[in-house]
Amino acid sequence: MPKLIKDGQLVQDDAWQVIDDEQDIQDYSIISLPRWQENKEALLTHAQAGKLGVWIDSHENVDLIGDDSSSFTLIAVNFPVFTDGRGYSTARLLRERYTYQGEIRAIGDVLVDQLHNLQRVGFDSYLMREDQELEDVLRFFKPFSNPYQADVRETKPLFRRRDKAVS
């Protein structure tokens, strides 16, 4: 059973599936970025209907999907290893540079200790690595009640709200 967390909950019945480039595309398939780029025109309606997702690998720059992002309701960002931090910039730029409104899903080497930063840069669902224990997982989302920086969720840095910030 895949371990998916979405909107702060464990989800059992999620239809989205990452598929290989050789597999046939079905409803709720998540395809690779090169496959999207090569078949954009044929796949556009499918994507716009909210039934096709795309995944971006860590070495693929966010500008490669760019404004196409608005055609999707789900974009997955892959972490080949959890120490590869490019995906954090990818998600943040999807939100801030391309004002992408749909779901951003972290896939690959996703560990509970990353959840806090991932949600801060704009992720909202997390396909956790197989071995992760998810009992009491929600506590990992907010180890810090009031971080210093602005992020996708809190658009003002602490220095602009220090007086008002409730700790």
């Binding site: 931090g85 954090y88 943040r92 840069v121 810090f144 971080p147 210093y148 992020d151 840095p157």
Partner: peptide, 14 residues
């Protein structure tokens, strides 16, 4: 120091 502490985007740099 404050800006860099627990920066959400830059915690796994190259």
């Amino acid at each position: 120091r404050q800006w860099s502490t627990f920066h959400p985007e830059f915690s796994f740099l190259p």
